[in-house]
C-alpha cells in the first residue's frame, strides 16, 4: 500500500470543492454543466479508491453507472440549453425567470 486511500479521498474532496465553486460562480449554463462534470469525477475517484481499498468490484460498477448518468445528464442538459438559449442574446441562467411568481 504505497499511496494511502486518504490521499485519493483528499484529491476527491479538492475536486468536489472546485466543482462546487464553479457551480456557484458561473452563470453560463454550459460552464455549470462542466463544473457538475468535475463533481461527478470527484465521486468516481472516491468510489474506485474504495473499490481498490476493499478489493471489491462493486465500487467500479457504481462508478460506471455514474458515468452513464453523467452522459445522460449532459445530453439532456445540453439539449435544454440549446432549446432555451437559441433565440436569446445572453447565455446566462439568471435570464430564466419565466416561472417566477
Amino acid at each position: 500500500m504505497t499511496v494511502p486511500i486518504a490521499a485519493y479521498l483528499a484529491l476527491s474532496l479538492g475536486l468536489l470543492v472546485l466543482g462546487l465553486i464553479g457551480v456557484m460562480r458561473r452563470r453560463n449554463p454550459l460552464m455549470l454543466l462542466l463544473s457538475v462534470e468535475l463533481m461527478l469525477n470527484a465521486g468516481n475517484v472516491a468510489l474506485i479508491g474504495f473499490s481498490r481499498q476493499w478489493d471489491d468490484p462493486s465500487g467500479q460498477v457504481f462508478a460506471l453507472v455514474v458515468m452513464v448518468v453523467a452522459a445522460a445528464e449532459v445530453v439532456i442538459g445540453l439539449g435544454l440549453t440549446v432549446a432555451i438559449f437559441r433565440n436569446r442574446t445572453n447565455l446566462d441562467v439568471d435570464e430564466l425567470s419565466a416561472m417566477k411568481g
Binding site: 453560463n28 454550459l30 440549453t81 440549446v82 438559449f85 437559441r86 447565455l91 446566462d92 439568471d94
Partner: peptide, 9 residues
C-alpha cells in the same frame, strides 16, 4: 461552437 460567444447579463 453552435451557441457561439455570448456574454452574461
Amino acid at each position: 461552437a453552435y451557441l457561439g460567444d455570448r456574454g452574461a447579463l
